[in-house]
């Protein structure tokens, strides 16, 4: 917000350095950061947004002490299996999940603070050959795991204190699920993308697989980030991290595709290209804004509904950016 006020976006395109570097979290250990996220944290009657950072063997919780200054509240040490990613549970307080594994996710753990014992803890949620995982509102976690014979999809609900409350099995599609995304405004709907480049829709309450819809050859190797239901259509934000780069216009970082769940037909609505011919590396979507790290080492931000790049943060003096996350 501060950067936007300082550097209004020009109508003819992004303005360089319209994102401003505000603060740095200095990790005194030499281990490399693998992921970053945020979590709502309640302490002493006050609920505030805190930052979570993960290295291969530890996950740290940081609180704002003063402008530009962050202090480490706690570190969970997870030394047996490397941490691969943080799995935030949106709008949830005092709970965050992490995925651990070697090349693929082998287990998911819940990190929490227990007021009963006045201590920070972690507990095992799930093990297996986990292909995709997402945290949903209302303390829910959905994951897909694969054995040689079959694919299993499961939603776990947590209690406020982090106990496992309920487990719901979801009907798996034939193809491996590569990513999940919540449908904004529809608590019981979930979308996913598959290795066969389809978008699938589930009813989370019943576990039913409602529809499988082909994304099409124009949108290869799609990964879903977010979905919105509006006017009888399902708008899905996709990225294509493994797509071959087109020489003419580069590769779009994000696309918005409209699906009619009744007929399974789809139409491209908007695409968001990097400001220069660079490729998308990884990114994050929040509401209708996308942010991604590009091969140039810059971070770009888009208004996904207008397909317009609204801000660029060039690589810093210390090197290329590696991750971009909304909070």
């Amino acid at each position: 917000d501060v950067a936007e006020q300082l550097s209004p976006v020009l109508p003819d395109g992004p303005r360089e350095e319209s994102l401003q570097f505000l603060s740095e979290l200095k990790d005194s250990s030499c281990s490399c950061a693998v992921d970053v996220s945020t979590v709502w944290w309640a302490a002493a009657g006050c609920r505030e947004l805190r930052v979570v950072t993960a290295s291969e063997s530890a996950v740290s919780l940081w609180e704002p002490l003063a402008p530009d200054c962050w202090g480490r509240v706690h570190t969970w040490h997870l030394t047996e299996i490397p941490v691969i990613q943080i799995v935030p549970l949106p709008d949830t307080c005092n709970l965050v999940c992490v995925a651990l594994g070697e090349l693929e996710i082998g287990e998911i753990r819940l990190l929490l603070y227990s007021s009963e014992t006045d201590s920070f803890k972690h507990s095992l949620v799930k093990t297996g050959n986990i292909k995709a995982v997402v945290g949903l509102k209302d303390r829910r976690l959905v994951s897909s795991s694969r054995t040689m014979q079959e694919q299993q999809l499961e939603m776990v609900s947590f209690s406020e204190t982090g106990g496992s409350k309920d487990r719901q099995t979801l009907m798996p599609p034939e193809e491996t699920v590569t990513a999940f995304a919540e449908v904004e405004g529809m608590r019981e709907a979930l979308v996913g993308t598959t290795a066969g480049n389809s978008v699938v829709v589930w009813n989370l309450k019943t576990g039913q697989l409602l529809r499988k819809m082909q994304v099409g050859y124009s949108y290869p190797a799609s990964i879903c980030h977010r979905a919105y239901s509006d006017s009888g259509l399902l708008f899905v934000v996709l990225s294509h991290p493994h797509a071959k780069e087109s020489e003419s216009c580069g590769s779009p970082a994000f696309r918005v595709v409209a699906f009619n769940p009744r007929t399974g037909r789809s139409a491209g609505v908007m695409f968001s290209c990097p400001p220069c011919p660079r490729r998308y590396l990884e990114g994050d979507v929040w509401d209708t804004a996308g942010a991604a790290v590009l091969t140039s080492g810059a971070v770009a931000v888009w208004d996904l509904l207008r397909g317009r790049c609204t801000a660029v943060l060039p690589p810093g003096p210390a090197g290329h950016w590696a991750l971009a996350r909304w909070a």
Partner: peptide, 23 residues
Amino acid sequence: CSESDLGPISLNWFEELSAEAPP
């Protein structure tokens, strides 16, 4: 997007598909 591209649209698609899909 028009109905000619995407076919007939239903505002209650989620409830309708849930009623039709196998349990």
